[in-house]
Design a protein around this nucleic acid. Structure first.
Length: 779
DNA sequence: CTGGTCATTTTTTTT
DNA sequence: AAATGACCAG
């Protein structure tokens, strides 16, 4: 096989190692690639897909499933560079996340899954609302039964392939029986609203594949080569989907690293990867051990820590990139000081080592830590971005606008209608709306249908009827726009592309959302208006992502038989407005935080450890290395959870290519309470030889720092420091405002500027940052 | 029916 | 520290 590859010229000379090459050139049959951090996993995956295509396998027979949209996009791009594009080699190739694959599957085969293809995808917030509603319909007080815990239980059930019925059947004790009741009510509610939650996308797809032989067969024919990335983070449902697809041809290649499994809490089952060889006895296993990312000390720290996991197969981690610098562990006064220390380090790397801002990242366990960091980054004028892909879509005005669009796409969605019915206020209050709801329930119809005959509803004031009629007239008009587009195929793609943005703009204007913010001229409303405008331009830029599939659906010839040389044919019909709307809403519903990372912004990235999976940076800072944060408080009781925290720590550390800074705040204010902290146990798990430690939590004269935190910027401190470094040679005597007279034992030009080890008569040996400690030289 | 204020509450990570 | 929810006045 290896000879084969070389002759194609696709992979030869690309700098792949022997083992990587083996993984790339494996053609048929199950393949497990155990890919340690930085082992060139993405390279292998992309080369492998390119290799398959060059071996003559049509791209539309290949399906690659990834964890995030970002990963999918990158993979697509890299494959593109590997294949000569004049041949449209990647046409028909499917690279996407599990969730978007399933979402599309369910639209296409909706009838087989007892669904309407217009279904809405509910996000976490919608899900919460729906659970609340179900709770009240089952008449439970939500004191003991929080939506969060119920939601978690339902999600777990779905991840184990248990639908409401199956769950109820196996429910034994009071607790599970209660959950079963809510689960059933919740599922009925979703069905009534023609909505699916994230887990449903997977669960229903899995059921579709196992229960509809024809559909399953069709999909097996279509996707003859399956590739699953980040396999260690797949859950049971995803496992079933992958297995159903691969059962016959067995051409399944999974890639992952058990040491980087960090989504157990969300149902990911690490056994999927550990027991792959049992599920596919003929599997070939290839282990990629060599690390091409990090220098040796960084890797050693990661290794020392991960070795403390008991439930783990040992794996050699090695690199040829040289020793590098030792990672640094720094204890700071509090979170503000911590942020400044990180920024000092980053600025030094930027100025002295010419490392671009985009090659640096700060990682933390919980999002709450980003706030302080963000403030200090802004203060110091350092460009930064927070990896929160969903942030934009969580703004009220955007959610409102999207709710209108969602309702437009799926008029059965009462929950969404409920959100917009009186936004902006149009005189439809609680009581009137309740009457509509009661009426809808009595007549077994959606609230939208009930609204259309508002005149017949008892007890409504003429005023309320008028308001309701006005609203339904407005929406009906939008519907007619969609219907016009449905019935006539678009001939001019350019005009058509603009039509979607026009629709969005029209909805924002005619719904009154725009006017709502135009009235007041305060800063906040200005921003909201700007956000709404941004939504319109995002809609203008949105391009329908499933051209290939659409061509396949519209044409009588299956894609496989269409001429590859005739791409114009595929471009001829752009999707009707409705499909574009659906695809847009789908893409919005499935964005992830990591999707927001855009290196071209030239900014430092701030993100959670989870979002950092799969990424790499020259310089990494990990903030909040404290007991209760990492490992997180809620993971401390169970061993398996603790091990996952350790893996999380491992993932963070192994993101760093050259420089790693771990920080702890001596005291931290969380939820408005300031409390002293204890250093993370993970720090105790690595030896003094591999990590440099410094404690600045008390020695730099708390007075200076606490009294005038803002008058002294870090830049000034840095300047101070550079001047002072020369002023304190070893052996020199100094005076410290708090500790008195001392003797300089050593000066280190390390990390965040120079530090000195000084022996004081009063307190003994201390390590001080010259920039902070107000030292006076005594000649 | 609307829009304020006050009190209470935060389970970590997310498709 | 911030966000939700309950409650109340207009």
């Amino acid at each position: 096989m290896a000879e084969n590859t070389v002759s194609t010229g696709s992979t030869a000379g690309n700098g792949l190692t022997e083992v990587q090459q083996q993984a790339v050139t494996h053609l048929d049959g199950p393949l497990l690639v155990l890919a340690g951090p930085g082992s060139g996993k993405t390279t292998v995956v992309t080369h492998r897909i390119a290799h398959l295509v060059q071996q003559g396998i049509p791209p539309w027979h290949i399906l690659a499933l990834t964890f995030t949209n970002k990963a999918a996009g990158e993979m697509r791009e890299r494959i593109e560079t590997l294949l000569p594009d004049e041949q449209h080699h990647q046409r028909g190739l499917t690279v996407c996340t599990f969730h978007s694959f399933c979402a599309r599957l369910l639209r296409r085969y909706a009838e087989f899954a007892d669904l309407s293809p217009q279904y809405t995808i509910y996000d976490a917030a919608d899900q919460r609302d729906a659970i609340k509603k179900s709770l009240s319909s089952v008449e439970l007080n939500s004191k003991n039964w929080t939506p969060a815990s119920i939601g978690g239980a339902i999600s777990n059930a779905k991840n184990q392939l248990l639908d409401a019925e199956a769950y109820a059947a196996q429910a034994g004790d009071f607790y599970t029986r209660t959950i079963a009741k809510v689960y059933t009510a919740y599922q009925n509610l979703l069905h009534q609203n023609n909505a699916l939650d994230f887990d449903d996308l997977l669960l229903i797809s899995a059921k579709l594949l196992s229960q509809q032989d024809e559909v399953c067969h069709e999909l097996r024919m279509r996707y003859q080569y399956l590739l699953v990335d980040e396999y260690q983070d797949t859950n049971h449902t995803q496992f079933i989907i992958a297995h159903m697809l691969a059962a016959e041809h067995q051409n399944i290649c999974v890639v992952g690293d058990p040491d980087q499994s960090i989504y157990g809490w969300r149902g990911a089952d690490i056994r999927n990867i550990l027991e792959f060889e049992e599920h596919f006895p003929k599997a070939k296993v290839i282990a990629l051990g060599e690390n091409f990312r990090s220098t040796s000390y960084i890797l050693q720290v990661a290794d020392e820590i991960i070795q403390h996991n008991q439930l783990r197969k040992h794996k050699e981690l090695f690199t040829n990139l040289g020793e590098g610098e030792k990672p640094q562990m720094v204890t700071c006064v509090d979170e503000h000081h911590e942020a400044e220390m990180i920024i000092d380090e980053f600025r030094r790397r930027h100025e002295n080592d010419s490392i671009a801002w985009k090659d640096m990242a700060v990682l933390y366990r919980i999002n709450a830590l980003s706030r302080v960091l963000e403030n200090v980054f802004r203060q110091e004028g350092i460009p930064y971005v927070i990896a929160r892909g969903t942030a934009f879509y969580e703004r009220k005005e955007i959610k409102d606008a999207l709710a209108y669009l969602r309702f437009l796409a799926n008029p059965q969605d009462n929950l969404t209608l409920n959100r917009i019915i009186n936004v902006p206020t149009r005189g439809i209050g609680k009581t009137s709306w309740n009457r509509v709801e009661v009426n809808a329930q009595r007549n077994q119809m959606s609230m939208w249908q009930a609204m259309l005959q508002a005149g017949r509803i008892d007890g409504l004031s003429p005023r309320a009827i008028k308001a309701l009629t006005a609203f339904s007239k407005m929406v009906s008009h939008w519907h007619s726009i969609l219907e016009t587009s449905d019935s006539k195929p678009q001939e001019d793609p350019v005009i058509h592309a603009g039509q979607f943005a026009d629709l969005v703009e029209r909805v924002i204007r005619e719904s009154g959302l725009e006017g709502m913010h135009q009235q007041q001229k305060n800063e906040e409303d200005q921003q909201r208006l700007a956000n709404l405008a941004e939504l319109v331009s995002a809609a203008a830029e949105f391009s329908y992502p499933f051209q290939d599939e659409l061509a396949e659906m519209n044409s009588d010839t299956p894609l496989a038989e269409q001429s590859v040389d005739n791409p114009e044919k595929m471009q001829a019909n752009l999707p009707p407005l409705r499909m574009q709307l659906q695809a847009y809403l789908e893409s919005v519903a499935l964005v992830s935080d990591a999707d927001a990372i855009d290196p071209s912004l030239g900014a430092v990235t701030l993100m959670t450890l989870h979002a950092a999976k799969g990424l790499e940076y020259e310089v990494i800072a990990m903030a909040g290395m404290e007991e209760g944060l990492l490992p997180h408080m809620n993971s401390m009781v169970e061993d398996s959870k603790m091990e996952e925290e350790r893996r999380l720590c491992f993932v963070g550390i192994t993101r760093a290519k050259r420089s790693l800074l771990l920080t702890q705040a001596g005291t931290r204010t969380l939820r408005g309470k300031r409390e002293p902290t204890i250093p993370s146990r993970f720090l105790r798990e690595c030896s003094a030889d591999t990590i440099m430690r410094a404690d600045f939590s008390e020695d730099h004269g708390g007075d200076d720092y606490l009294d005038t935190p803002m008058t002294h910027t870090s830049r000034e401190r840095q300047a101070d420091c550079d001047v002072s470094a020369g002023e304190f040679p070893v052996g020199c005597m100094v005076r410290h405002p708090k500790f008195g007279v001392g003797r300089v034992e050593g000066v280190m030009r390390r990390a965040r500027g120079s530090t000195a080890r000084i022996y004081f008569e009063s307190v003994g040996l201390k390590t001080l940052v010259l920039a902070y400690a107000k030292l006076t030289p005594l000649s």
